[in-house]
């Protein structure tokens, strides 16, 4: 089992050039849990993830991992604790799955250190957990979307970090592959206690698969808590500017959001009164 790590974000401000995106954001990530960040387009979800994983430097505030600022820690050391799967990673042409996954061992090696059996074991475990062992010798280019995403998750796993950030891991996947990836992440969380933080677009998937939801609006945390606390009709209205109905998901029992538009309403009078 892994050690639990404290990930805390304090008064964080960041952006691109003179365009501020995050403005004084505070957030504490629950250790050993799955947290999903949701919000409208351009509310700063990806910027937050990029700042946590130090792809962006904050203009104010800080991100603390176990009390140390991630932007001041040695990068290689940090990369052994905190992993990130970007939204659209690029596989070098022709690379095999096994080779891709072994790239995840990068932070565990210095300039001269040799590959060890521990590295092989980590790669093997990552392949096994993500059920990509049978794909090990296939080229990443040839895989289906779902298989490819599992291969990338395997690479992030081979990195053996205790905290894993994922930027929209289910984008471009059809619904069965979405479920497959989210189930896999839940396996990892439950079996190894990995803290998972991800940006998700699909609110209902986020509610079903997360222990905590963070709803962002205008570069700040609007609401943070269990899916039951966060996914309410009022919050959706404030964060997305959308009227909706929230009912219990008959499959998982978690809250489920049904949007209300201007048309195709079974009982227009009742809805417009709502």
């Amino acid at each position: 089992m892994t050690v639990s790590h404290e990930l805390a974000i304090e008064a964080l401000a960041a952006g691109y050039g003179d365009r501020p995106i995050l403005q004084g954001l505070d957030l504490t990530i629950a250790p050993g849990r799955i947290t999903s960040i949701v919000g409208a387009n351009a509310c700063g979800k990806s910027t937050l993830l990029r700042t946590i994983s130090r792809l962006l430097s904050p203009s104010a505030g800080q991100v603390l991992l176990d009390g140390r600022s991630v932007h001041r820690s040695p990068t290689r050391e940090l990369a052994r604790t905190l992993g990130l799967l970007p939204q659209t990673p690029v596989a070098p042409e022709g690379i095999t799955v096994a080779d891709l996954v072994s790239r995840g061992r990068h932070p565990h090696h210095g300039i001269l250190s040799r590959w060890t059996s521990a590295d092989d074991a980590a790669v093997a475990t990552a392949l096994e957990v993500t059920r990509t062992a049978n794909l090990a010798d296939r080229a990443v280019d040839e895989l289906s979307g779902g298989q490819r995403q599992r291969a990338w998750i395997a690479m992030a796993l081979a990195q053996e970090t205790d905290v894993l950030l994922l930027d929209e891991p289910t984008t471009y996947l059809d619904v069965s592959h979405q479920v497959e990836v989210l189930d896999l992440l839940t396996d990892l969380n439950q079996a190894r206690g990995i803290t998972i933080v991800m940006v998700l677009h699909d609110l209902n998937m986020a509610a079903r698969y997360s222990d905590r939801l963070v709803a962002m609006a205008q570069g700040r945390v609007h609401a943070h808590g269990t899916p039951e606390d966060v996914l309410s009709e009022a919050t959706i209205r404030q964060v997305f500017g959308l009227r909706c109905r929230v009912i219990p998901d008959p499959v998982s029992g978690k809250p489920m959001m049904l949007p209300i538009g201007r048309h195709r309403l079974a009982d227009p009078d009742a809805e417009s009164a709502a």
Partner: peptide, 19 residues
Amino acid sequence: RDLEALRMGEEAAAALGVK
């Protein structure tokens, strides 16, 4: 080795601890 990691894109490379 850092250059090899950069082949996967800057974000992935940075996540792997490449400066």
